[in-house]
Design a protein around this nucleic acid. Structure first.
Length: 271
DNA sequence: AAAAGCCCCTGGATGC
DNA sequence: TGCATCCAGGGGCTTT
């Protein structure tokens, strides 16, 4: 579900409210993607210093170590002063002095992992080989183009891969490629500097816009305050197969790439 | 080494 | 109504 915009919107919706709190208890429900990595009760008493985001991961910095959260395909967080009773798909309650952070995740592809202080966060296996942040200062068009040229695959797959640039998932990959006028099946080694530059700009524009309007709510995404996003209403191609292209009117096409759906306009995205 | 496939899991939509 | 099948916003691991 959540790509960079949804994760960032979620972060912004509770970071200030949880910062400075003290952990009272951590309750884990059904198994998520990975084990927590420590006994939940050992976290009681730790202070939550703040919340950062790296790619699609959320990092809760503690005064000792950190909690790494991932929302997988169907995860969402809620932060409430007084939470209601936990439902069937609520698999984590982080109870703090300022409220409870609850993970709701029907498919359980999400994760909550404790990373001890002694292991450097960047060195953690899960964060180790992530690409650059698309909205940060280290995402450069020229470097992006050079990296694309070294790959031997198609451009959509590289965007999803996250080794070159992080945070772009299945929705925003299609959207950014549409905005850049590049067909998703284009071989990376054949992309010119000019087109790579357009794609670089499109990724930033699409992601920033999605953050601005609260992300995409396709089924049930909401931020930690329970608010929906509205990007899906502006999607140019994602989920619009057969519907007229907003730019030229041609029917949007859907294809499969690596077991995922891809959407594009065959006229606006010639190659 | 790098790319492509395979799964993990639940639920909603669709087809017979 | 029931049941089978397919699909869904991710990504680590295994296979090629």
């Amino acid at each position: 579900m959540p790509e960079l915009p949804e994760v960032e919107v979620t972060r912004q919706s509770f970071a200030d409210r949880i910062a400075g709190s003290h952990i009272l208890a951590l309750r884990m429900g059904k198994a998520l993607r990975w084990p927590l990595g420590c006994e939940p009760q050992t976290l009681a008493g730790r202070q939550v210093l703040g919340v950062r985001r790296r790619g699609k991961y959320l990092l809760l910095d503690l005064d000792q170590g950190l909690l790494l959260l991932h929302l997988g395909m169907s995860g969402s967080l809620r932060f409430e002063r007084v939470p209601g009773e936990a439902g069937k798909h609520d698999h984590m309650d982080l109870q703090t002095s300022q409220g409870t952070l609850r993970l709701h995740d029907p498919r359980r592809f999400g994760a909550v992992v404790f990373v001890p202080a002694e292991s450097s966060p960047a060195a953690h296996k899960l964060l180790g080989k992530l690409g650059v942040e698309p909205l940060g200062d280290d995402f450069h068009a020229l470097d992006f183009w050079k990296a694309l040229k070294k790959r031997k695959t198609v451009v959509k797959q590289v965007l999803l891969g996250g080794e070159l640039v992080v945070g772009v998932g299945n929705i925003y990959a299609s959207e950014a490629l549409f905005m850049a006028g590049i067909r998703p099946s284009t071989r990376t080694e054949r992309i010119s500097l000019a087109r790579a530059t357009r794609l670089h700009a499109a990724i930033r524009t699409v992601l920033a816009r999605a953050v601005e309007i609260g992300g995409s709510t396709l089924k049930d995404f909401s931020n930690a305050k329970g608010e929906s996003g509205y990007f899906q209403l502006e999607a140019a191609v994602y989920g619009r197969q057969g519907l007229p292209c907003r730019a030229c009117g041609s029917p949007i096409k859907a294809i499969r790439q690596g077991q995922r759906s891809t959407f594009f306009c065959p006229v606006c995205q010639k190659s």
